[in-house]
Amino acid sequence: MEQPAYRNPLRTGAVRPTELLPWLAAALGFFLFPDYLQLGSQILIMVLFAMSLDLILGYAGIVSLGHAALFGTGAYTAGILSAHLGWSEPLSGLVIAGLVAGVVGFVCGAVILYTRGLTLLMLTLAVTILLQELANEQEHWTGGDDGLQGVVMEPLLGLFEFDLYGQTAYLYALAVLFVVFVAARTIVGSSFGQSLRGIRENERRMHAIGCPVYRQMLRAYTIAAVMAGIAGALLAQTTEFVALDVLSFERSGDVMIMLILGGTGRLYGAFIGAPVYMILQDQLARLSPEYWLFGIGALLVATILYAPEGMLGLAERYGVRARREAP
């Protein structure tokens, strides 16, 4: 029996050596840049967030300008659990936040996934802004514009204190990212993941072969919501603070740009896009915010015109060419 030609390594079960690279880099980063661990954890969190967007955008083809709604829901859930309800055990907080975001994602998805195109775009956007306005208005719970203060975390597993250098936070984020990644990798490699790809490639045909398209999309949306909620909760827990911008349109845009820069529909795009984006931002914004904004705008335009499949897509294209030319 011949093996099918899968271009995407994730569609074969075996782990390729190159797949270890990002994890190796993340582990090395811990030892090589001890002063940058806070940025490091934020990068890991955004990787997780971008990966969750990839599930709906890159696999199911749902264009959402409001993915921050789910990230923010997770962040505020984890934050409020600790600051108001005294629930400061991190792991259970993470799970609860993921579940709450999942419920919100399911309800929103159930309503908006009937629509397509501009309408869907506008609905995702409107829901996010609505939530942000709500968070802004409910000052008692969220701290409004000043952000949610008073989030404290108990030691992880009762053993590891969250330290000032962010070592525990970094390793915590890395471990969570790994666990969620393994789940996501399994999902996109499953028949369900294949079915999502079919919806992205040709929704009409999926209907014609009897696929319950709406139900599959809603499931993907809900799973992505749980993942985004976990990412948001991680941010709240590791920074012990929740700002209103977790729900902003800008954050939805940022995460989408990260994913596009890295490459959609391959999970690992998030691992490239998020670090590149955030390190560039960290460095360029220090010079001047305008440079950064202009730079990212130009990079985005160039990516769309010349490398619509992102950096990973570009690398793959040249990789494939090299392999073809080799005997």
Binding site: V63, G297, L299, L300, V301
Partner: peptide, 16 residues
Amino acid sequence: LQQVLLTIGLVFMGIA
């Protein structure tokens, strides 16, 4: 999606 991102890129450059 590509149209959205291209024009967002333009907006960023314009703002800068």
